[in-house]
């Protein structure tokens, strides 16, 4: 079988909010000095889901694909170090500044071009824009069934079984391959590569495809030109909260003072 993991490199979401800055003239996040971009956390968990199945069923090739700049190689290498077999970087100036539609379009064309893909694993959402639509978009464009927000994924007998997290419960669904699944943090922590695996990953193949490698795609369909959602404004919401720290000699004193504030505000 052949699995694809879609991986995105993003600004580190653990950047302290005080270091999070936006350039409002460019509608861009200003990279925090000294903080490197990372593999989007949910994509690492998607890789974990794919690798667990590979360990169980054996004969599986895993390709990790990233649409991004040359620097996204680091995200690809990380998934290769976890145990994926081959990397694919989709890189072209024409792909830059796209939206979720153009991202799903290019990824789906790449998956089509790979030809023999049985299952696609994505994170439930990228931890930068938090949209949660690229996995579903790939599935829709490739006419594959899709289950989102999985906490457990299994493949056997040509079928994918996904246990999904709902807002008020769980659900188990089954669908025929090829299929797309998006994976959530409830699956568990992604494995941490050993030094030896990191060294092996450096030797694994990472192919590069640009727009010219896609017969079906025109420059007008991708990147900034292909956007269907136009980013008008990116801003940090104003906070009007001024915290009152309740002081006191003891926890009892602080607690009584807080309770009387709540009584005064008619909350309790």
């Amino acid at each position: 079988m052949h699995f694809v993991i879609c991986a995105k490199q993003i600004p580190d979401p653990d950047t302290p909010p005080s270091a999070f800055k936006i350039d409002e003239t460019k509608n861009e996040v200003v990279p925090a000095p000294g903080i490197s971009p990372v593999l989007s956390q949910f994509d690492g968990i998607a890789a974990e889901a794919a690798l667990r199945i590979k360990e169980k069923v054996g004969d599986v090739k895993i390709t990790v694909i990233s649409l991004g700049k040359e620097s996204a190689q680091a995200a690809i290498k990380q998934v290769l170090a976890m145990g994926a077999d081959e990397g694919l970087l989709l890189e072209d100036d024409a792909f830059e500044n796209g939206d979720h539609y153009t991202t799903a379009l290019v990824l789906s064309e790449a998956i089509k071009k790979l030809g023999d893909v049985d299952a696609v694993f994505c994170g439930r959402q990228a931890a930068d824009w938090d949209m949660g639509q690229v996995g579903l978009g790939i599935a829709q464009l490739l006419e594959m069934p899709c289950a989102i927000i999985g906490k457990d994924v299994d493949i056997s007998d040509g079928k994918m079984t996904v246990q999904r997290v709902l807002l008020d419960g769980f659900e188990t669904v089954e669908m025929p391959l090829p299929a797309v699944v998006t994976v959530s943090n409830e699956l568990g922590e992604p494995r941490y590569p050993k030094l030896q695996q990191i060294m092996q990953a450096a030797k694994k193949t990472v192919n590069k495809w640009s727009l010219a490698d896609f017969e079906n795609l025109e420059a007008t369909q991708v990147g900034e030109q292909g956007r269907k959602l136009k980013l008008e404004k990116l801003f940090i919401p104003a906070s009007d909260s001024e915290v009152e720290i309740i002081e006191g000699e003891s926890a009892q004193e602080q607690a009584s003072a807080l309770v009387s504030r709540l009584k005064d505000a008619k909350i309790l």
Binding site: P11, P13, P17, F20, I22, V29, A127, D128, W129, D130, M131, R227, K228, L229, K230, L231, E232, K233, L234, F235, I236, P237
Partner: peptide
């Protein structure tokens, strides 16, 4: 809509 884990908000228009 909120984005970047709630650190920022983005306003979009539609060209489709």
């Amino acid at each position: 809509r909120p984005c970047f884990g709630g650190n920022a908000r983005a306003t979009y228009s539609y060209s489709a």
